[in-house]
């Protein structure tokens, strides 16, 4: 089966009313998504990225049947999402990174029991899936804990499990690692990799975290102003704009800008300094150099973010 998700010239036009004067309002059309065409094959794992307001979430909402497209043709697993929302719901799993669908005051397991009945998952399959997800996502000790007492990372794992109990063919993830600590991020990523590799679940992922894409997706789609501006491997995107990582250094006291080979100070704020170095290179030599010469209190490395990469991509294009 080649095309599992297929979009042909899909458009979404919103009418925005803006205030123009005391009572007058003027109408304006906004094309959130503009003749968007792409296909995703079954079992692919695709990163879907772009700046805020580029049309990412509008696309996801059309793919899940929440929004009706204004034009074009859209199919997920052969289903027209807008017309058969409920039938599609059995085939897809959705995780909204910042909005949990779990029941706040109830033990985690209760949310799963509801999904069991709402999705009419056969008992045997429910037990099997729950067992597997609990093991892989390390939820065993959390099942009886009220959701409000879970940490952000635990809750995200709980949400992912809830979205997968009914064995969906495709999983949409909206910022699944936002706000998570390093360990939780790693767990989530590892799980997604396994899910994709072993069960062949198609995954579509929107994120601001370039590492999510780097570690998970062989293919990236970049959307901007409602149009697809890049579709290909991440490596190509990187080349399109040589990106930089940032080393944040906390010194014991305020000092003049530090010096390190292969890195340059881009910002100083009290005892904290920011150093930029090429993304492709390791941070170790820079750190070693600094540790030998300066009184360090703390260090952290920040990955280049998507927006910076896209901005550079545009800059390159303008030049070439």
């Amino acid at each position: 089966m080649g095309e599992f998700i297929a979009l042909e010239q899909v458009e979404k036009v919103f009418e925005v009313r803006r205030k123009a004067g005391f009572l007058r309002r003027e109408r304006r059309e906004v094309r959130a998504v503009d003749s968007l065409s792409f296909t995703v094959a079954r079992g692919e794992m695709v990163g879907y990225i772009g700046p805020n307001g580029a049309g990412k979430s509008t696309t996801i909402k059309m793919l899940t049947g929440i929004l009706t497209p204004s034009g074009g043709r859209l199919r997920v697993a052969g289903i027209d999402p807008a017309r058969e929302r409920a039938r599609l719901a059995h085939r897809i799993g959705v995780v909204f990174g910042q909005r949990t669908t779990l029941w706040w005051d109830l033990p985690l397991i209760d949310s799963y029991r509801l999904a069991h009945r709402m999705y009419r998952i056969p008992d045997a399959r429910y037990r099997e899936n729950l067992g597997r997800l609990v093991e892989l996502l390390e939820l065993g000790e959390l099942l009886d804990v009220p959701v409000r007492q879970l940490s952000l990372g635990q809750r995200m794992r709980g949400d992912i499990a809830a979205a997968l109990l009914h064995d969906p063919d495709v999983l949409y993830l909206d910022e699944p690692t936002i706000g998570l600590d390093v360990v939780s991020k790693a767990k989530v990523r590892e799980f997604l990799r396994e899910l994709n590799a072993e069960r062949g679940t198609t995954v579509l992922l929107t994120t601001h975290d370039l590492q999510d894409i780097e570690q998970l997706c062989s293919r990236v789609m970049v959307i901007d102003h409602g149009r697809l501006v890049y579709d290909g491997p991440l490596a190509g995107l990187h080349e399109a704009g040589e990106s930089e990582r940032t080393l944040v250094v906390d010194l014991e006291r305020e000092l003049p800008p530090v010096e390190a080979p292969g890195a340059r100070v881009v910002r100083v704020e009290g005892p904290r300094q920011w150093l930029a170095f090429p993304a492709g290179r390791s941070a170790a030599p820079v750190v070693a150099h600094l540790a030998a010469r300066y009184p360090l209190v703390d260090l952290s490395v920040r990955e280049p973010d998507i927006e910076a990469v896209i901005a550079r991509m545009y800059a390159e294009r303008a030049v070439s």
Binding site: I66, A86, R87, F96, R99, M118
Partner: peptide, 14 residues
């Protein structure tokens, strides 16, 4: 307003 209606729309229920 807060967007939680969307979470209801992706469930297979009226």
């Amino acid at each position: 307003r807060d967007g939680t209606l969307d979470t209801l729309l992706v469930r297979p229920a009226p």
